[in-house]
Design a protein around this nucleic acid. Structure first.
Length: 513
DNA sequence: CTGGGGACGGGGCCC
DNA sequence: CGGGCCCCGTCCCCA
């Protein structure tokens, strides 16, 4: 028994020794690893300190440079804004600026005109209520003896804040200077022309003698104030295509009412008592949606929207796309583009009629509008890459934008690719050409979702008065079109025509063909 | 095959 | 006479 106890005691002591040895071993290993780890940490800390010092040094350098630049700009404050913009642009090229805010179009300084005499500003605002302007920068450098390149800038109504940002060169405002116009010396003369025009439409000049490349730029800033009600209330608010008009390229025109109540009988069909009302309310349901915001500032920062000869392709399985490759506009030598300064629909928003709502009001109460315009679609889905300038200084922009309307794509493609002379008016959203401005304005409701004509009985809305009138037949039961063979009656004329194919045996598909 | 909405082109009127 | 605007006719598409 005693032996057994001694044996157990010895075993216990041995176990204890072994355990202690194991613990010591573990501790030793831990200590070793810890030492190594500490060493690594120390080295990392040293590296961090060195990098921090470098960073501080760089920040100091940047601050110093910025201060110098500010001083220089003050000294050159009498220089034209565009030149200052050029300076800033160059500064950005040097890495002094920031592109965090994307790009903006520069605007004529509000309140005071800093343009020099050799920078004529031609403002053609038609009704004087223009909220959009077109700025065409024409380089008249001697070196520009060749085909000149005009750069148009879309512009909103003069926004003091906007101007101030530009003038002060706020870091977040990166004003891009057209790359096609090599930043010339300060002596570069530029004529800037503001042209009033219809939204999203521009006129293709036919009498021009010199080919120019017009680049339409959809300028926007990533952290912009797009949703700012104030901004929405100004400028393009009154225009259907407006919400995105800030990104509109060029040829903005003054606004007008869709159907001025002064016109009065917009829906008056001469006794046809249409129980309809005229509103300018946006139909959120029909508003273009699904904007996958691709404001990739790192890629393009700003999107150029160019148009003219373009090809179409399906780069996106999900939907049709339009590849806009280049804009070619013929312009006379000595003059700015001759633009058709017309009033745009849904502009001033007359409220003379009971059923007439102020469009801007509607927009103001519908903040979604600002983000649902097709132009936003354009902005947000456009994948832009800028090609190199050709030998003539033309810049070719390539764009791929998703088109919401496949039909518009098909039709628009034909319209523009053919470059029909008759279709002088182009929709800036889909590049479709139209023969007259009114058609463009109507067409643009496709993009804007504006449906000014509403039925009072079912509150359906229509973009065209004629469609509303036809729609009214649903309520009235009027079927003016009757078949002479079977006395079937139809409310649509085409329904009758389609129906008569049954009698004639004409194949519907063949009829289509 | 029908009903109905969306969209475009063009004629006619007015200024 | 030309441009702008309104309206209508027409076609396409979808349910």
């Amino acid at each position: 028994m005693a032996n057994c106890m001694v044996f157990h005691t010895q075993i216990a002591s041995i176990m204890e020794v072994l355990a202690n040895a194991a613990v010591a071993e573990i501790c030793k290993l831990v200590d070793d690893d810890y030492a190594v780890f500490r060493l690594e940490i120390t080295q990392s800390q040293k590296e961090n300190r060195a990098l921090r010092r470098k960073l501080q040094q760089l920040e100091l350098n940047v601050a110093r440079e910025r201060a110098e630049r500010t001083t220089r700009e003050r000294v050159l404050s009498s220089r034209p804004s565009s030149v200052k913009i050029l300076d800033r642009y160059r500064g950005m090229a040097r890495g002094e600026g920031h592109l965090t805010g994307g790009h903006r179009s520069f605007v004529k300084p509000a309140g005071h005109n800093t343009w020099r005499d050799d920078q004529p500003i031609t403002v053609d605002e038609g009704s004087g209520t223009s909220n959009q302007h077109v700025i065409m920068i024409e380089s008249v450098d001697a070196e520009a003896a060749g085909p000149r390149v005009k750069q148009e800038r879309s512009e909103r109504e003069e926004d003091p804040r906007h101007s101030r940002e530009i003038q002060t060169g706020a870091p977040h405002v990166a004003t891009e200077v057209p790359t096609t116009t090599a930043p010339g010396p300060p002596s570069t003369r530029r004529s800037i022309t503001e042209v009033s025009g219809p939204p999203n439409a521009f006129l293709k000049s036919e009498t021009d003698t010199e080919t120019l490349t017009v680049t339409h730029r959809l300028l926007h800033t990533g952290s912009d104030h797009r949703s700012d009600p104030e901004r929405l209330g100004r400028g393009r608010l009154g225009c259907p295509s407006a919400p995105g008009s800030e990104y509109l390229p060029i040829f903005h025109q003054t606004q007008r009412t869709v159907n001025s109540p002064g016109d009065g009988d917009t829906l008056d069909t001469g006794g046809d008592d249409l129980s309809c009302s005229y509103t300018t309310e946006m139909d959120p349901v029909n508003m273009p949606l699904g904007l996958e915001t691709q404001t990739d500032l790192s890629r393009g920062v700003w999107n150029q929207y160019s148009s003219s000869v373009y090809s179409e392709g399906c780069l996106d399985k999900k939907g049709p796309v339009i590849v806009v490759e280049e804009v070619t506009v013929n312009v006379e030598d000595d003059g700015p583009l001759t633009l058709n300064a017309d009033k745009t629909p849904l502009g001033e928003g007359h409220s003379q009629g009971r059923d007439v709502l102020d469009y801007r009001e509607s927009l103001g109460t519908n903040p979604n509008v600002a983000t649902q315009s097709p132009l936003h679609i354009l902005r947000d889905t456009v994948s832009t890459s800028m090609g190199p300038s050709d030998s003539h200084g033309h810049v070719v922009f390539h764009q791929v934008l998703n088109s919401k309307d496949q039909r518009a794509k098909a039709q628009g493609g034909g319209a523009t690719s053919g470059s029909s002379k008759e279709k002088r008016f182009l929709c800036m959203s889909c590049n479709k050409g139209f023969s007259c401005l009114q058609n463009v304005e109507t067409h643009q409701r496709v993009h804007t979702g504006v449906k000014p004509f509403s039925c009072t009985q079912c509150h359906m809305r229509f973009a065209q008065a004629g469609n509303l009138k036809i729609h009214q037949r649903v309520h009235t039961g009027v079927k003016p079109f009757s078949c002479t063979l079977c006395h079937m009656r139809y409310s649509h004329s085409y329904s009758l025509k389609r129906h008569q194919r049954v009698h004639t045996g004409e194949n519907s598909t063949a009829a289509v063909m």
